[in-house]
């Protein structure tokens, strides 16, 4: 009798306790989520607000958190400035050219490494070289690049940046494409080979069409990295070949109080990257981990 009573009581009691605990757990989780969202969203809001505030509204204490008295003048000044237009164009050209070069050259390398057994254990030698290259801190190449480009008369030109960025991106492309080729079934290629297709024909007519989307994903990652790159551009350019990250960074020294223009130009350089990131969101983890995690 008592046993029965206990048996009927116990689940009810524990269920009530569970419900209370889960409520606290839920409140705590949503609290954390709100903090997380605030830390992500507020800085972006602040950047947008700063790009639209009147100059007189920046240096107030406490700062103005919300106002409807906005202006587009910072945007007009930032984007109307012919120098900034030139820097944006430079960045676009350098990024596009080096992305295409690195993606093509790296894809060819990766295909050979994935499919052909080279003599002298070259597969392994090349793979290790590529990994070592990827691990390099770029700063260790910046000084020799600067001096070599000076000797070649390429300082402050777009080709200098294209060379540096193609080199920077190549190891990444090769490694990521290698992991994509690994996922590609070999049977079709094997069948084509039996039918007498040469390696070039197999690559051109079978592999390339199948891996176009992987190449796009890889290229987008490269594009984002090169677009944002600061160090090489800082080292190799001074006036005419400057890219947009250098232009933004130079606000700090030259025009430290132009917060509105600083913000407007920052947003202008961020939007293309963000749009690209959204298109490759599915592959982001793969790109970040260098293909180590398929995501």
């Amino acid at each position: 009798m008592t046993d029965l009573a206990l048996m009927s009581l116990r689940p009810a009691a524990s269920r009530a306790g569970f419900r209370w605990r889960s409520l606290v757990g839920q409140a705590w989780r949503y609290g954390c989520l709100v903090v997380l969202l605030a830390v992500i969203v507020f800085p972006i809001y602040w950047l947008v607000l700063n790009s639209l505030k009147h100059q007189r509204d920046f240096f107030t204490g406490p700062p103005i958190y919300f106002t409807t008295d906005l202006t587009l003048s910072h945007w007009q000044e930032a984007l109307g400035n012919p120098l900034n237009q030139k820097y944006l164009l430079n960045t676009a050209i350098v990024t596009a050219v080096s992305t295409v070069l690195a993606t093509l050259a790296g894809t060819l390398c990766a295909y050979v490494l994935a499919r052909i057994r080279l003599p002298f254990r070259l597969n392994r030698v090349l793979l290790i070289s590529i990994l070592i290259a990827r691990l390099f801190p770029p700063v260790s190449l910046a000084i020799p690049y600067y001096l070599l480009m000076r000797q070649l008369g390429l300082l402050d030109t777009l080709p200098a940046l294209v060379i540096a960025y193609t080199g920077l991106a190549l190891p990444f492309v090769t490694w990521l494409m290698l992991t994509f080729f690994q996922d590609l079934p070999r049977e079709i290629e094997r069948a084509a080979m039996v039918d007498g297709c040469t390696m070039f024909q197999r690559f051109r007519w079978i592999v390339l069409p199948m891996s176009l989307s992987s190449m796009m994903v890889t290229a987008i990652f490269v594009f984002m990295g090169v677009w944002n790159e600061l160090l090489y551009s800082l080292t190799l350019t001074s006036l005419s070949a400057k890219t947009i990250p250098v232009a933004i960074a130079s606000f700090v020294g030259d025009n430290a109080l132009a917060w509105g223009q600083m913000s407007a130009l920052s947003i202008a350089s961020f939007v293309p990257i963000l749009l690209m990131a959204l298109t490759v969101q599915r592959y982001l983890v793969r790109g970040i981990t260098f293909g180590a995690v398929k995501g």
């Binding site: 992500i40 944002n228 933004i248 961020f270 990257i273």
Partner: peptide, 16 residues
């Protein structure tokens, strides 16, 4: 949304 801080150009991150 977590992509946003991650994709922010590092220079912009510093300025911001």
């Amino acid at each position: 949304l977590m992509l946003v801080p991650l994709m922010l150009p590092p220079v912009v991150l510093g300025i911001l």
